[in-house]
């Protein structure tokens, strides 16, 4: 369980035994790493943008009206782009109270079910996000502010992020199924 801080430094999970799954995992890890780098830049940029809006209003008497929405878009992007990365380290917290009580075989079945249902949900959510993106793109939807940036931008980030998350869970499930020895994926 990790909340608020990292309880232990992330260990690089051993690559899956199956060659195809291992290759796909390596590829996804690269993508996740890249998205994490981009998100770090976006987070610092957001802090700059919000600070700039204060400075600009008070020192240059030139209020900005785009800082809130620009920040919202960037942070929505950060959240969804990094959710697969967090999942790759099993960083989405859950109540693991049963883990120690169940016999190993039953526990393995439980973990499999959890991953399967999570993957199904995320796949469904990705699909509906892409539809939302499509709608916003076709209708040219924007937010209703003065700045009025197009809504397809955050929707696309949400859809892409959830799709990568789905892939991540599917790969973790496949790894668990194909690994020769039982171990945490």
């Amino acid at each position: 369980m990790s909340h608020g801080i990292e309880l232990e430094p992330p260990r690089a999970a051993a690559p899956p035994d199956n060659a195809v799954v291992a290759a796909a995992t390596a590829l996804l890890n690269k993508l996740n790493h890249g998205l994490m780098m981009a998100s770090m830049v976006a987070l610092v940029l957001t802090a700059f943008v919000l600070t700039y809006s204060v400075v600009s209003r008070y020192f240059f008497h030139a209020p900005t009206d785009w800082q809130d929405e620009a920040s919202v878009f960037m942070l929505v992007g950060v959240t969804f782009f990094c959710t697969a990365y967090v999942q790759s380290q099993r960083g989405h917290i859950g109540i693991e109270a049963l883990a120690t009580l169940l016999p190993p075989r039953v526990n393995a079945a439980r973990l499999f079910m959890v991953d399967l249902v999570s993957a199904l949900f995320c796949a469904f959510f990705s699909w509906k996000s892409w539809t939302l993106f499509h709608e916003a793109w076709v209708d040219g939807q924007t937010t209703s502010s003065t700045f009025a940036p197009p809504l397809w931008i955050p929707y696309a980030m949400m859809a892409a992020g959830m799709t990568i998350l789905t892939l991540q869970i599917v790969l973790q499930t496949l790894a668990r199924m194909t690994n020769k020895t039982e171990r945490a994926a």
């Binding site: 209003r57 008497h61 030139a62 209020p63 009206d65 809130d68 502010s145 003065t146």
Partner: peptide, 12 residues
């Protein structure tokens, strides 16, 4: 839009 045109500092 009209507040800006009137020279106000618009806050959101």
């Amino acid at each position: 839009l009209i507040l800006k045109a009137a020279g106000a500092a618009v806050v959101s």
